[in-house]
Design a protein around this nucleic acid. Structure first.
Length: 594
RNA sequence: GGGGGUGUAGCUCAGUUGGUUAGAGCGAUCGCCUGUCACGCGAUAGGUCGAGGGUUCGAGUCCCUUCACUCCCGCCA
């Protein structure tokens, strides 16, 4: 028999009454009645109430013992009387009368209570992560994470994918995020980079003839953190397949995600066949390429109407003449909303850095009229035209924003979310997946006005290769796609460009000549020249996927040992200074003073 | 790099218009209590009010600087 325990803390039932048992775990909670002491003993699996009275020689020691001390108890299982059964506990029908006990691990005074639902300062939680992880919510999130990953792994294997590991020390690439760099001792002055994703390796796996690859892959990007973005490192379900078209990938991923979300959440899926929305369409209707489809509001362009003679909205007219556009959001049946509802949204828009949101409500007595601060600028005819164009009805309201394209997308996209939240239009019990497809191959860099890859430089352009007009690079559409769920970007993927000549051509448009491509992407370009299969893939973000399943707003809540916003591990004290010998070994010296 | 929020006891927080000795709950310590499951009751200890500077007769409170944590923008193919 195991020397520490005969049962786990969730196991004992009425049938065990009369047996002598060994239990080991943490002291979750004590209730001291002076001559009678209750101890809730907790382990990974559950809680068992243990009891001791002052007749026992151990009573006074146990009475004084700190919470979270690890003990082993030996005792007898007894029934609880009917009125003391605890239905909230798996083991609530019994309790264990303590005969003897040992302390297995002492505990100092706690910096944060483990038994509590209270929230705590992030700093303390991260420094004492091992205590935080004992707490119910976080403990369960991490267990969920483990189960989801096992499930995904099984499903992938069932679908014929092979799991491979790819290097962690690799080479820096010029595209994408900032790299984490590792100095090479054997090659002084040279650096490895940690992979931002196993992108090139997984394509090389395809060229190597393995057909279907996946990996729960760590990815490293040295960029600033957000609530849904860990600083430094995160995990992707990286996958790649040979001899496939876009729809083959969609089919696999839809199956996997539908199964996973049905298995691990009670929330409903809005679509089991995810809608395909083109990038251009998404930008128009939602102002973003990660739309939350639970939100019924859409953005519409009404620029033309503001050019009419019978619309006297001079500020907008002026802006339109200097290149701005007008977009609107219609809200259904909001005529009875108080003035404060509209003004709050206008004020909110100003706080976001926009010039505000104009608004009015369509009303009808004899004629259609507009109620609201800017209503007077519109003739009845013009209002009818707006209603026709936007499908607005009597009693609906309209929010209007006017500015240059980029700014306009940003504010209308945010306003769409803000207004829907204020009107409580978003069903929190839904998952709304969609595919965003047809991304442009290139885009114009705002600052430099140069043409850059808009997503992945290895994506395949759409259409017949011989008919692509390289003189209009901004019009080239790629087989590039994202999965979005509830407004969160879950993954990004593409059918890859496996034709070297085409690759050189596309890189040259982005300003990389053949020599640079040969040098920076040696392995890839070389491999594509020796018989590369057409292939494509995608990489759903594991952490975000689990955030959605665990219903968490912050990625730290589903990460076992996260770093803080400044990319520091407060528990392990990373990053840290290294000693002179280590620097010397690497051929480095520091310019920055410690 | 920029903007917002927070910082008061071990933990979670309150602290009014600048005014006596900075409070509460949980936790800790001590005492009472044999059926609790957020046990109850009583007492005690515990404070560089994030740090530094300034205004003032007087600063937790007002001003300036700075630090930490956090959210957002930039950034994230």
């Amino acid at each position: 028999m195991n020397k520490y325990r005969s049962h786990k803390c969730n196991e004992l039932r009425h049938k065990d009454v009369g047996n002598k048992v060994l239990l080991a775990g943490w002291i979750n909670k004590k209730r001291d009645h002076g001559n009678l002491l209750f101890i809730d003993l907790r382990d990974n699996y559950g809680v068992t109430q243990c009891i001791i009275d002052k007749e026992n020689k151990n009573f006074s020691i146990l009475e004084k013992i700190q919470l979270e001390t690890v003990i082993r108890i030996e005792g007898n299982v007894i029934d609880r009387s009917n009125d003391t059964i605890n239905k909230d506990l798996d083991t609530g029908e019994i309790e264990v009368v303590i005969e003897s006990f040992d302390i297995l691990g002492n505990c100092k005074e706690l910096p944060l209570p483990v038994f509590s639902d209270q929230e705590y300062a992030e700093e303390i939680r991260l420094k004492y992560r091992f205590l935080d992880l004992r707490r119910k919510k976080l403990h369960e999130n991490i267990i969920l994470r483990s189960k989801v990953i096992s499930f995904i792994r099984n499903e992938m294997i069932k679908m014929g994918f092979l799991e491979f590991q790819t290097p962690i020390l690799t080479s820096s690439s010029p595209e994408g995020a900032r790299d984490f760099l590792v100095p090479s001792r054997l090659n002084p002055g040279k650096f490895y980079a940690l992979p931002q994703a196993p992108q090139q390796f997984k394509q090389l796996v395809m060229v190597s003839g393995f057909d279907k690859y996946f990996q729960i892959a760590p990815c490293f990007r040295d960029e600033d953190a957000r609530a849904d973005r860990s600083p430094g490192e995160f995990y992707q379900l990286d996958l790649e397949m040979s001899f496939v078209e876009q729809e083959d990938i969609f089919d696999i991923v839809e199956k996997l995600l539908v199964k996973t979300f049905k298995n691990f959440s009670s929330k409903k899926l809005m679509f089991e066949k995810f809608p395909r929305i083109s990038y251009a369409n998404s930008m128009m209707k939602y102002g973003t390429d990660k739309p939350d489809l639970r939100n019924p509001l859409i953005i519409q362009d009404v620029t033309e109407i503001f050019l009419r003679e019978d619309v006297k909205f001079d500020i907008f007219k002026k802006l339109i003449n200097s290149g701005s556009k007008v977009r609107c959001i219609i809200t259904k049946n909001t005529k009875n909303k108080p003035r404060s509802f509209f003004d709050n949204i206008d004020k909110w828009a100003k706080d976001q850095g926009a010039s505000g949101l104009a608004y009015f409500t369509f009303e009808k007595e004899q004629e259609i009229s507009a109620k609201g601060p800017v209503g007077k600028f519109f003739s009845s005819e013009a209002l009818k035209e707006i209603m026709k164009k936007t499908n607005a009805e009597n009693g609906d309201s309209i929010f209007l924003a006017c500015s240059k394209e980029e700014e306009l997308k940003k504010i209308t996209s945010l306003a769409r979310e803000k207004i829907a939240r204020d009107l409580d239009l978003i069903d929190e019990n839904l998952f709304a997946f969609c595919w965003i497809v047809d991304y442009p191959m290139f885009e114009l860099d705002d600052k430099t006005k140069k043409i850059v890859f808009s997503h992945n430089p290895f994506s395949m352009p759409q259409g017949n290769i011989n008919e692509i007009n390289f003189n209009k690079p901004l019009d080239i559409i790629a087989y590039q796609y994202d999965i979005v769920c509830n407004g969160i970007e879950l993954s990004s993927g593409a059918i890859r460009n496996h034709i070297p000549e085409l690759m050189y051509k596309l890189f040259s448009i982005a300003g990389y000549d053949k020599k640079i491509v040969d040098k920076k992407f040696t392995g890839m370009i070389n491999a594509l020249s020796y018989g590369a299969p057409p292939h494509g893939g995608i990489a759903p973000g594991i952490d975000r996927l689990i955030m959605l399943l665990a219903n968490e707003k912050n990625i730290r809540e589903v990460t076992m040992f996260p770093m803080n916003q400044n990319a520091q591990d407060l528990m392990m004290n990373a990053p840290s200074y290294i000693n002179e010998d280590q620097l010397k070994d690497l051929g480095l010296f520091l310019k920055v003073k410690k």
